[in-house]
Computed example of a mutant assay.
Amino acid sequence: MKMDIGLTHIALPVSDIEQSVQFYATYAAMKVVHRRIDAETGVAVVWLSDQTRPFVIVLIQSDSVHPVLSPLAHLGVGCPNREAMDALCERAEQEGVLLQSPKESGYPIGYWAFLRDPDGHTLELSYGQEIGLTVESNAR
């Protein structure tokens, strides 16, 4: 049987699981890959993935949320190009969730912006960080 090893997920408490699912679907191209009501606690749990790698965000419904991912702590998502990122940031600004407008910081940081999810956790959108390429080149 194949087992998961390495970093597989991050778990975030959320106050409205459906609102959070919608946020991460919109801004991080993630979709639900698992959904359940926990048998022991009766709490709703959702796993989200962008399906580019074996990693999920686990959303756990909670009555009380204290955001732990706030600038500088954040989740980072690479965008395919600046235009796509700018479009997401424009939407985020219209929806009142843009924390930091897009900024060019050069190599290795690239072009980036911060958004606030429904519970105050921070999502970074970026283009040009080359994290995947750096990991690949160091794995050889």
Rank of each mutant, 00 (worst) to 15 (best):
Q94Y: 01
G76M: 08
E136W: 05
V43D: 07
V77A: 12
Y27W: 03
E93D: 08
W47Y: 13
M1Y: 05
A11Q: 14
G106F: 07
L99D: 10
P54V: 07
V58Y: 00
I131A: 09
A28Y: 04
S137A: 14
S105N: 10
R140H: 09
S101T: 12
Q94I: 01
N81T: 04
T52A: 07
T41M: 09
A139V: 05
L98E: 02
D4A: 15
R91N: 03
A39K: 13
S105Y: 10
G132H: 10
Y107A: 13
N81S: 14
M85Q: 11
Y111S: 04
G128S: 05
F23K: 05
V56L: 01
A113F: 03
D16S: 10
K2F: 12
R140A: 12
D4G: 14
Q51H: 03
Y27R: 05
I37P: 03
H9D: 10
E95A: 12
S15H: 13
V135N: 07
Q19V: 09
E104L: 06
L75I: 15
A11T: 15
G132S: 10
L125W: 02
D86F: 01
S64G: 00
G128I: 04
A11R: 13
P118K: 04
P102R: 05
M3R: 14
L88Q: 06
A87H: 11
M1G: 15
V65R: 07
D50W: 03
S101I: 01
L75M: 13
F55T: 11
V46K: 03
N81Q: 02
M1N: 09
M3L: 15
V56A: 11
C79H: 03
A11M: 15
M85A: 06
I10S: 10
D117L: 05
S101E: 11
H74L: 07
F114S: 03
I10C: 11
E124H: 05
V46C: 03
S137Q: 14
R53E: 14
V97P: 02
E90M: 02
H34Q: 08
Q51T: 12
R82N: 08
S15Q: 10
S62L: 04
E18C: 00
S20R: 05
F114A: 01
V135R: 13
D119G: 01
D86C: 00
L98V: 05
P102D: 05
Q19F: 00
A29S: 14
E40T: 06
P80L: 00
V65D: 07
Q94L: 06
L75G: 04
A87K: 12
T26P: 00
Q129G: 13
R35Q: 15
T122C: 15
Y24Q: 06
E83P: 00
L99N: 04
V14D: 01
S137H: 10
V58L: 09
G110L: 02
D86M: 02
Q100A: 05
